[in-house]
Write a protein that binds this DNA or RNA. Structure first.
Lengths: 193, 193
DNA sequence: GCAAATAGTGCGTGGCACGCAAATATGTGA
DNA sequence: TCACATATTTGCGTGCCACGCACTATTTGC
């Protein structure tokens, strides 16, 4: 069994991110400055100093959950059957990673659409890039620029998909939006251009 | 832009970003915390309070120059001849935008490889996405997800290209690296997968 | 020139990230 | 089971920073 310490650490981290995001959602995007570190810490049942051992800014705490999810990108791809073509392997891996469980709409909206969080939100998504690039390289045997560019494009596409999923207009399932976004990446459709 | 006020504003902004980046480069990535707001302000010949009217964090000031460059993405694409196919138009537009003038290696290295600047650096690159997406949409007549995904993928590819250009190993001209990165975006090379 | 709008500045305030060291919890070997 | 080593939590103190506010200086349009 894995270290109890490690599990406790994960639990505390999760408690802090959850509390931070919940409080941020409660205040809404305009009242982000009102989310005090003290509130986050006490809501997570931890001292302010401990909060700061885990995160070095409110923004990082709020986006921490998203970052943790993104980090799984490489493993998600590695879990796909070896024979699968790259595009479907990547697509299905990302659909699974980002829709299971379905993200909380309010939380994702807060993260992605609050200007002050923009930088940290981008960081939260892109932390998955490197592991995804490695996994792609393993799969295709490619080296150098190409796997990294593919990984970065995939992550960027998912980010755009998230934005679209959040717009109230058309509410297709998130999985469908991700599939459409990734198909734009893997088949740029030369003819119509 | 004919406005004297607007030009002064631009000049002050430029002075602050330049000073901020210069000081950051001088201290190196490890000594980022030593770059004080007072130093930036006085190096730019402006009061600390004024510095804060332009930027709301040191990170934003340091990455401001990169952000300004990225913002030109849409216009750069619109400046390409109308008949050009999308992939070459985008490629040439981006090569022009990001290599004229050639970026300062030390500055770009500071921005892209300093962990504390990661979020802001990503923001600096992605500020160009929306304008680029619009310009792509105008060109292709496409609507919805696809232009945005393309724009995001292009920006992401340029970011990866920048990272590669900074690695001491192979020093190809930046323009070449950008071209290779973008060709990965526009022709995902289905056969080898 | 004159009035309105806009930019720059000084001061004060509340909050935050983090170094440090003591206290507490957890893992390990005999 | 117990004691020792290691990791984590916590309280306290410090320096810095972002920003509201009010005031001054500069630009602009009439």
């Amino acid at each position: 069994m894995t270290d109890l310490r490690a599990r406790n650490r994960q639990a505390t981290r999760a408690a802090i991110t959850a509390a931070a995001l919940r409080l941020a959602v409660e205040q809404g995007p305009s009242g982000l400055a009102l989310v005090r570190v003290n509130d986050i810490a006490s809501a997570a049942g931890v001292s302010p100093r401990t909060y700061n051992n885990y995160f070095s800014s409110r923004e990082e705490a709020i986006c921490g959950g998203q970052a943790d999810r993104s980090r799984g990108a490489g493993d998600a791809l590695r879990a796909r059957p070896a024979g699968e073509p790259l595009d479907v392997a990547v697509t299905e891996a990302m659909v699974g990673l980002f829709t299971d469980p379905e993200p909380d709409r309010a939380g994702l909206r807060m993260i992605m659409l609050t200007p002050e969080l923009e930088g940290e939100a981008l960081r939260a998504f892109t932390v998955g890039e490197s592991s995804l690039a490695e996994a792609i390289a393993e799969r295709t045997g490619e080296t150098g620029l190409r796997p990294e560019v593919t990984a970065a494009a995939v992550v960027a596409a998912i980010r755009v998909a998230g934005r679209h999923w959040l717009t109230p207009a058309a509410n297709h399932p998130f999985a469908d939006v991700i599939r459409r976004a990734l198909s734009s990446v893997f088949s740029p459709d030369q003819t119509s251009r």
